[in-house]
């Protein structure tokens, strides 16, 4: 296990000292700037949305705040996916092809320790990143609307869990695929999860049970999506009535309650992905 800790420390230093990390930070600051600007503008016009309209029990500020936070979560999951992919896409086959892996693997640490170290480092970097950006977007929305999410911690933890699932998938892909192919496959999986969320929204809107089942199955098969949906749900857990219904159909995917079952499934999923990665890595000639 000490080998895994050494590798994790090495991978953490690599994460923050590669130029790509600076690029991600700059893009994130640009995103947060634009998000703050857009949020301020949206809340300037919230009154125009409600005045003179018969909208019954609609909580306009709550709806707009939830929608903006939903947008923030969607962007955070996307950015975390980009970061996770860049940190892990070439961790095994890519690094072996470049000659970076061999000097490490001949040392007396197991290949499984090396994988666990890489996972721990990438998942930690993504977790800190997600926590920072989620905290910033929540503060921005609170600043503009005076509202907090119904559950502050839940959505952030769900996003952190989702990013860990993506790291595990990208690491698994890095054992069997070249860096480029792995990047493409991981983004396709992210896209598949996104489509599942949109399908679920459509299914909820038109009341299609079978479409909903398909979307739910995909979300469970790609638990980062199920966790994201659970995070969206936690944002507005206490919203009811017309506002709650509108939020359910929000533009950034459907929201569904998570729970301990989903958390355990996501944990098992990550463990299974890492176990398959370790199995494949142990049999790979370098």
């Amino acid at each position: 296990m000490s080998g895994a800790v050494v590798v994790a420390g090495y991978a953490l230093r690599e994460s923050v000292r590669r130029r790509v990390f600076v690029v991600v930070l700059l893009l994130t600051l640009a995103f947060l700037g634009l998000f703050a600007f857009a949020t301020a503008k949206v809340f300037e016009h919230t009154d125009e949305f409600t005045v003179g309209r018969n909208i019954g029990s609609l909580d306009a500020i709550g709806l707009v705040a939830s929608t903006m936070l939903g947008l923030g979560m969607f962007a955070i999951l996307f950015l975390a996916t980009v970061l996770a992919v860049f940190l892990t896409l070439g961790a095994v086959r890519g690094d072996a092809e470049r000659g970076l892996l061999q000097p490490l693997v001949v040392r007396p640490l197991g290949r499984t320790s090396l994988l666990l170290g890489r996972f721990a480092a990438a998942a930690s970097v993504c977790a800190v990143y997600v926590a920072f950006v989620y905290g910033a977007t929540t503060l921005i929305v609170h600043q503009a609307s005076g509202r907090w999410p119904d559950t502050v911690l839940g959505p952030g933890l769900a996003l952190i869990g989702g990013s860990a699932v993506i790291v595990a998938l990208a690491l698994l892909g890095s054992v069997f695929l070249s860096a480029t192919a792995n990047g493409i496959v991981t983004f396709m999986l992210f896209g598949a999860g996104l489509v599942a969320g949109l399908m679920q929204s459509i299914a909820d809107g038109i009341g299609s049970h079978s479409l909903g089942q398909i979307a739910h199955t995909i979300a469970i098969a790609l638990p980062f999506e199920a966790l994201y949906q659970a995070g969206l749900h936690a944002l507005t857990a206490n919203q009811t009535g017309f506002t709650g219904a509108l939020i359910q159909l929000g533009p950034f995917g459907s929201s569904h309650a998570g729970g301990i079952g989903l958390d355990l499934w996501a944990l098992a999923y990550v463990a299974l992905a890492l176990a398959i990665a370790a199995w494949g890595f142990a049999r790979r000639d370098l």
């Binding site: 080998g3 050494v6 590798v7 090495y10 230093r13 690599e14 000292r17 590669r18 470049r98 000659g99 970076l100 061999q102 000097p103 490490l104 001949v106 040392r107 007396p108 640490l109």
Partner: peptide
Amino acid sequence: YLAELFRFPGWARAEEVLALHQRL
């Protein structure tokens, strides 16, 4: 072991490379 085709991470300093291998 010294591989025929090997690389060390470009961001690392010479002493850091050796320190990493000492730990490993």
